[in-house]
Amino acid sequence: MNDRVRLPGGLSLRPWEMSDALAVREAFAEPGMERQADAPVVTVSDAEEWIGRRRDQWSREAAFAFAVADASGTALGGVSVSGPDAHATGWVSYWTGSAARGRGVATLGCRALADWCFAELGLFRLELGHRTNNPASCRVALASGFVAEGLQRRKLAYDGVRYDVETHARLATDPRPAP
């Protein structure tokens, strides 16, 4: 299985490395980003544990998480697919640190991840969801070829507030998004 993918602009997808711990800690320290982690990431040690869990999931083929790295190898964000199931469906997630936002990093990473999932994992359907109050995440989904499919009303709750989630999907048979 190919675990490294070259992207336009000198970017690449690669598995997370322990040397990414500082970048992971810095990204998850940003306001609102703590929701992207499966456990609190406050220290470099926490970030190393987060990376360790990503590597463990990969070894068990439960999820496949990639760093989106620049030409120097610095992790700018992450993309992942989890839950490849008997129906050849996976769940996609993505995030970037603040320095990478607005530069197309998440879109390029998400597009490449989808192509990788179809080619390397043989998946047919990829799904994702975003809060409706996060238009940037919606733009990434649409630019990555994910079609909006519906609304899950008040699905998520953060700090006592409920949020609607818009769902998107991309099929292996869908046309590839234009560059």
Results as ranks from 00 to 15, higher is better:
W16Q: 10
G109P: 00
E61V: 07
F28V: 09
R6L: 15
E127M: 06
G109H: 01
A86C: 08
W16V: 09
A65N: 12
A86M: 07
L113E: 05
C138N: 00
H168D: 00
A143M: 05
D20E: 05
V41S: 08
A63D: 05
T74C: 08
G77C: 03
A112W: 02
G122V: 08
G10V: 06
A69H: 05
R14F: 06
D46V: 12
L128M: 09
E48P: 04
W91S: 07
V79T: 03
T43S: 15
Q57W: 13
K155M: 14
E48Q: 15
Y94L: 01
Q152A: 14
V42H: 13
W116P: 02
V161S: 14
P8W: 00
G73D: 06
A65I: 02
R162I: 09
A23T: 05
V161E: 15
E48N: 09
G10D: 06
D38A: 14
S93P: 00
G104N: 03
R4Q: 14
D115F: 03
W91Y: 08
G73K: 02
E49G: 12
V68K: 00
R153H: 10
N2A: 13
V81N: 04
G97F: 00
D164I: 06
D70I: 09
A169Y: 01
W91D: 10
S12G: 13
S12A: 15
S19W: 00
D3E: 13
H130R: 00
M33K: 03
C138M: 11
A21Y: 07
P8L: 06
W58K: 09
D159T: 10
D164E: 06
V44T: 15
G145I: 04
G129I: 02
R60W: 09
L142N: 01
A63W: 00
G102L: 08
W16I: 03
S12M: 12
V68I: 11
A37Y: 00
Y163R: 02
D3H: 09
A37F: 03
V105S: 08
R111S: 03
A23D: 10
G160M: 11
W91A: 05
D174Y: 02
E166F: 04
T173A: 13
A65C: 11
R154M: 12
E61P: 01
L76Y: 04
V81H: 01
S59M: 10
A112C: 08
R25K: 14
L123S: 07
G78Q: 08
T107S: 13
